[in-house]
């Protein structure tokens, strides 16, 4: 499974890299737990919302290019061949 990070998620106080390949986990929630364990509280506070049961308001997660709001949110199931992309809320134009 590939996880890609963007914008400040690449900073050293978050993931500190652009991309990792990792052992498959079952859901996005589990992925968040594993990554937060690895990267710390700051990461957790952005990845999850305050209740810990949804994606944080300042974060956008795509699974295979689909925004997880249109899949099954934080409970979206993941497969080994999936690519997960994690962005902060950004804008431009």
């Amino acid at each position: 499974m590939i996880v890609k990070f963007f914008a400040y998620y690449r900073d050293n106080d978050f993931a500190g890299c652009k991309e990792i390949s990792m052992q498959p986990v079952k859901t996005l929630k589990e992925l968040g737990e594993v990554l937060s364990e690895r990267y710390g509280e700051k990461f957790r506070n952005e990845y999850f919302d305050a209740t810990g049961t949804a994606v944080g308001e300042r974060t956008i997660i795509l699974v295979n290019g689909r925004r997880v709001e249109f899949l099954n949110g934080i409970n979206t199931e993941l497969k080994d061949e999936d690519t997960v992309q994690i962005f902060p809320v950004v804008a431009g134009g």
Binding site: L62, Q85, V90, A91, G92
Partner: peptide, 24 residues
């Protein structure tokens, strides 16, 4: 606001490349 208070200033509009590419 995360976009107008930080994102746009720090990262500029080009930050959209990856996410727009991400959604195909």
């Amino acid at each position: 606001h995360p976009v107008t208070g930080a994102g746009l200033g720090q990262l500029g509009t080009m930050i959209l490349v990856n996410i727009v590419n991400g959604v195909g």
